[in-house]
């Protein structure tokens, strides 16, 4: 603050601080509080708002438990509320997106950070960045087109003789997962690359010199060293995936609903902001709990992520 004042003087410092405060307070915190408050109140006709029926309750939150459907998994069939099912699957598949993104990013990052020569690094990074120049909407559409019934993926596979008949790729959760991985994998790559880059090459050589095969060098040296990067990358990819509306909406796999689509339906089509807000906060709460649990499991602290 003092530094800012010394560098920019009174007027500019005031402007910078007040604009940041305005953005945080008015555009982020206040609307969130308004939604949080609304989530505890019933959805009422305008005339009843502020009336005797307008009392705080957990009714909106309880709505997630309605409308049971059949669900079978691992050979077990049971009844589960439809929205809970979508909720749980969203969390599970977001975790899967995170895992796949990690499996793709880890070898790539190791290659970029430790194998490739400094000379070709800018080119490789450019190649990684180029897709980001195109908007997420277009990239998701591109995947949708690739995976459609008469799309290029089926055409190529048919031409190669690998399949007899077109496969319906846009079905279930896999197209959503594929597109989400593609959309967010770079959020995994950069933090991991950053943490791997700071690993001293001599440590790799020292471990090998002491007799370690390559996999043990990774398990004992590279992986522990990159843990903070993996953690922050995973948190970002998981949160972005679970909260993504655009990708599942564009892919629009009828059997692969995302919980954000449920929220959108309630808020926009149903005009019921109160219930929508309640669901959104449940998603936020549960994702936070999931992240904290994962951090506990892998023994990562918050300060590791902030590095």
């Amino acid at each position: 603050m003092e530094q800012l004042y010394r560098r920019y003087g009174k007027g500019l410092t005031f402007m910078i601080v007040s604009l940041t405060a305005f953005w945080l307070l008015v555009l982020v915190i206040l609307p969130d509080f308004k939604l949080l408050e609304a989530s505890f109140r019933p959805y009422l006709p305008v005339v009843d708002i502020g009336g005797p029926k307008d009392t705080y309750s957990l009714g909106n939150y309880a709505q997630i438990l309605g409308n049971p459907v059949d669900f079978s998994s691992f050979g077990l069939s049971f009844q589960i509320p439809a929205r809970v099912k979508v909720f749980v699957l969203t969390i599970i598949y977001s975790g899967m997106v995170t895992l796949i993104a990690f499996l793709l990013a880890y070898p790539l990052c190791f290659y970029l950070a430790k194998v490739v020569s400094n000379r070709s690094l800018p080119t490789l990074f450019l190649l990684l960045f180029v897709p980001l120049w195109v908007s997420e909407v277009l990239r998701s559409f591109a995947w949708f087109i690739i995976m459609t019934l008469k799309g290029p993926l089926n055409a190529i596979l048919m031409a190669l003789g690998a399949i007899e008949k077109e496969i319906r790729w846009v079905d279930g959760y896999s197209p959503v997962v594929v597109t989400l991985v593609y959309a967010y994998v770079l959020f995994m790559v950069f933090p991991i690359y950053n943490s791997m880059q700071s690993l001293d090459n001599n440590q790799l050589e020292a471990a090998e010199d002491l007799g370690a095969p390559w996999w043990r060098v990774h398990w004992r040296i590279v992986l522990p060293h990159s843990k903070p990067g993996i953690a922050s990358g995973s948190v970002m990819v998981f949160m972005l995936s679970a909260g993504s509306l655009l990708v599942p909406a564009i892919i629009n796999s009828t059997t692969g609903n995302w919980f954000t689509q449920t929220i959108q339906g309630i808020m926009l089509e149903g005009q019921d902001w109160n219930t929508g807000a309640a669901f959104a906060f449940m998603l936020l709460l549960f994702c936070t709990v999931a992240v904290i649990a994962a951090m506990r499991l892998f023994r990562v602290s918050l300060s590791d992520i902030a590095r």
Partner: peptide, 18 residues
């Protein structure tokens, strides 16, 4: 290097900090 009967001590020692 992991097959040779040699052990190298690096200039910066390269101890494993974790």
């Amino acid at each position: 290097p992991n097959q040779r009967p040699t052990a190298l001590i690096f200039q910066n020692l390269a101890l494993f900090p974790l």
